[in-house]
């Protein structure tokens, strides 16, 4: 295995494009190292992105959004007051990945590129309308996070392409988001179901909403019907029931060692309701 530590994303993309065998990018490494050690993925070239300047930065963009470096670990997201104030749901999704130790390494970009339908940070990013900046041999492009995963373990990135930043839109006023997942234990599990809700209020009424579900289909789902169920409401009981029904109806899960399809469908509605309640309260000014 060849280990590379390029100092620009362009160099990283060049190395990846020229590589013949199995190639992996190394950011936090919490998935790549597990695959490497178990022998499931034995890269010929491993490209460490953490020596590239700026990869550890969290910066406010000109329009008031946020640009997050690809090596920023979950612990650093959680320690960033501005980001936590604007996008608590995105941050809490990332902070649910693994243990305190894993939080010291694991990154949004890595969690996204691993391509797991159960990735905890992805529904929050999708609900937030986040995009990624991709650097490839042909230059850079931007892609909504929702379009990055295309199947279990598969992404829309082409050979030689690498995510070079995560970009969150401006939060704006009277808005809130939240992410909840269901796991059998209290920590250290892969989501059986994950639900993220981002919404904006006009007075007490929900003016805009985005609802994303994880672990209930081959890729993360952005469920328009679930959002529609609560837009125009004050999240009263009937809106909540409609949200739960829409969320459950959107699920297309499998039975696996982590949970049954029936359970996932049922609990997706529950998680969506509970996340919506938190997001709503946050939009009304409750602290995260």
């Amino acid at each position: 295995m060849r280990y590379h530590s390029p100092s620009t994303f362009e160099d990283a993309a060049r190395i990846a494009a020229a590589a013949q065998g199995v190639t992996r990018f190394l950011a936090g490494g919490t998935d790549v190292l597990v695959q490497l050690r178990s022998g499931h993925v034995l890269p010929d070239d491993l490209i460490d992105l953490k020596k590239i300047p700026g990869t550890y930065d969290i910066a406010q963009t000109e329009d008031g959004g946020w640009r997050i470096g690809i090596a920023v670990p979950g612990a650093a997201l959680g320690a960033h007051a501005g980001l936590c104030k604007d996008w608590p749901g995105v941050v809490e999704g990332m902070e649910l990945v693994g243990s305190t130790q894993v939080q010291g390494r694991a990154t949004l970009a890595g969690n996204l590129c691993n391509g797991s339908p159960a990735a905890d940070s992805v529904p929050g990013l999708v609900a937030a309308g986040a995009t990624v900046e991709i650097t490839g041999p042909e230059g850079t492009r931007s892609l909504p996070v929702a379009e990055v995963p295309v199947g279990p373990g598969k992404t829309a990135l082409t050979a030689g392409e690498v995510i070079s930043a995560i970009v969150l839109p401006p939060r704006g006023d009277k808005a809130g988001d939240a992410y909840l997942r269901f796991i059998p234990r209290t920590e250290m599990d892969i989501a059986v179901v994950g639900a993220a809700v981002s919404l904006r209020l006009d007075g007490d009424t929900i003016a805009e909403a985005r609802v994303a579900l994880g672990a209930v289909a081959p890729t993360v789902l952005l469920v328009a019907e679930a959002a529609e169920a609560i837009v125009g409401t004050t999240l009263d009981d009937s809106a909540m029931d409609a949200l739960a029904a829409a969320a459950s109806a959107a699920c297309n899960p499998i039975d696996d060692k982590r949970g049954t399809a029936a359970f996932r469908i049922e609990v997706a509605g529950v998680m969506a309701k509970r996340a919506a309640r938190i997001a709503y309260d946050r939009a009304k000014g409750a602290s995260a």
Partner: peptide, 27 residues
Amino acid sequence: NEEYVYGEDGRLQNPIFLDYRVPVASD
């Protein structure tokens, strides 16, 4: 939560601590 989960193929499905769920401190 703890159990050995075998697939139809007779292979153990959960041979790591992530999926063989022993209690953690917060449980």
